[in-house]
Every structure is written in structure tokens, then in C-alpha cells.
Simulated assay, not measured.
Amino acid sequence: MSTTADLVTALKKELKHAQMTYADLARAMGMAESSVKRMLAKGEMSLSRVDAICRALKLDFAELARKVADNQPLLAELTQAQERAVVANKKLLLVAICVLSQWTLEQITSAYRISQAEAIVCLAQLDRIGIIELRPLNRYRLKLAKTFRWRAHGPVMEFFRDEVLLDYYAGGFDGPGEGLLLVHGEVSRSLAPAFMERLQRVAQDFAQQHLADQKLPTSEREGYTLLLAMRSWEFAAFAALRR
């Protein structure tokens, strides 16, 4: 959540970008330079003062607020409560997955049986949950970091384990660009994290390519789901036979 300190920091950046000194700002606002310095140092100012600074900078307050929001730290994961809110409604979960892929409102409503009104309600809910910042014309800014992951034992992953995995593995994995690899082996414990890092890079490459290919016509794109996993595990039926 943004604070007054964030607002003051943004204003200082705008002053520097505009090459406007405190003396210049003081003259534009009809104040003493010392008063301007004290006001910005303490971060104590009324909305009318903020408006006056914006006018001096020829900056719209809405634009300033957007810049403050853009500078907020991105989330690497959600809380349990946030995830529970997402899985409470399947249409909301679907829209959440779509926004993770940076789909527009038009793409969501054209691909799924979700009305524009329903999709807008879902976007508003995702805004309240904290996944996106909803903007005018139903556009949004994703508030999740590139390293974002669903909680390992959280509500969303539990939903996918219970409802999605069997459906995913029911496929033949024999279509163009498809494949299923199952490799078992014993490797040094010290090397296992290195393999996991490689898998994470593959996932990042896939996600970046998805974003890059959004400029292509829909007819040239195909939806794929990449599932990568690695864990210390043995099939229970085999483990039961161990001596």
C-alpha cells in the first residue's frame, strides 16, 4: 500500500526530472524556499499543496498517483486469505489465470463464456484482493513479481491437485509441440538445486515468450500449459516393497 512517503519520493523524482530546484518550486507556489524544503523533508502537506506542486510541474495528479502505484513492491506470493478468495469462484480463478498471462478484457470475453459485466466484476475483485491495479477503460497493472508462485500448500495449489492434475495427465502428450518426460535417478544432494534452477529458467523463458508472442495474430498462437516439477519422491506402491 502506498504511503505519504511514497508520494513525496515520487514528487522529488518529478522535480529532478523536470530540473526544477526547490527555489523554482517555491517561486511557482508563492512560498519561501525554506518552507518548501521543510514541507518535503517532513512529508507533511495537504492535498491542496500536492495539487499546487503538480500544477508547477504541469503534472496531472492522476498521473502522479499512477507513478506512485507503479513503484510499489510487487508480490512474490499471496496470503492464504487472498488465495482462498481467488479459488472461491471458478470464474474468478479463470480470470486470475488470464491476467497472469496479461490477457485483455476483450480476449477473456471472446475466449470464454463470460460476459463483459462478469469479467469486469472479476477484475474489480482481483483489484481488491491485490493481484492487479484496475485502471480506466478496464485496463490493469499486474501487481505480481516475475518470481511469483502460488503457495506450495495454499488453496490454489490444493485446488489444482484435487481438480486439475488428473485432467491434465489424461492427455496423450503426443500432439505437435507436446511431450511428457518422466526421469528417475539418484544425484548428489548438492546438485539437485542446480537442476531446479534450470527448470525455473525454462519456465521463465516460456513466460517471456508468451508475452513476446502477444503481438502475433490469434491464428498463429496455440495455448500450451507447461508443468515442471522435481522432488525427492518414490511411488508409494514401490516404497511399500522396500526392505
Rank of each mutant, 00 (worst) to 15 (best):
L182P: 11
Y140S: 13
D162M: 14
H153M: 10
T109C: 06
A119Q: 05
H153L: 01
L137Q: 11
F159A: 10
Q116H: 10
H153V: 06
L134S: 07
E133P: 14
L105A: 14
V99K: 05
G154I: 01
V95N: 03
W103P: 03
L126F: 05
H184D: 06
N138W: 14
R135A: 05
S110K: 13
D174A: 05
Y168H: 03
L123Y: 06
R141N: 14
G154P: 04
A119E: 11
E118A: 01
Y112H: 11
Y112W: 12
Q125M: 12
R139F: 08
F160A: 02
R135M: 14
G172C: 08
T147V: 10
V187C: 07
R141Y: 12
L165F: 14
V164K: 05
Q102P: 04
R113L: 12
G154K: 06
Y112A: 10
P155L: 01
C122N: 07
L100E: 09
T147Q: 15
F148N: 04
V164N: 05
G175V: 01
L181T: 05
V99W: 00
L166M: 06
L180F: 13
R141C: 13
E133A: 15
G130Q: 11
G154N: 00
G171V: 04
L182Y: 08
L181D: 08
A170E: 14
A170H: 13
I129M: 10
S101L: 05
D162W: 02
R113P: 09
R149S: 06
Q107P: 01
K146M: 02
D167R: 07
G179N: 00
S115M: 07
P155K: 11
V121S: 03
S115N: 07
S188G: 13
S101K: 15
I132P: 01
V183K: 06
G130R: 08
D127S: 10
A145F: 11
I132E: 08
E178M: 08
W150A: 08
F173S: 04
E158W: 00
L142G: 02
D162N: 09
L182F: 13
E118H: 08
R151P: 00
R149D: 09
R151I: 12
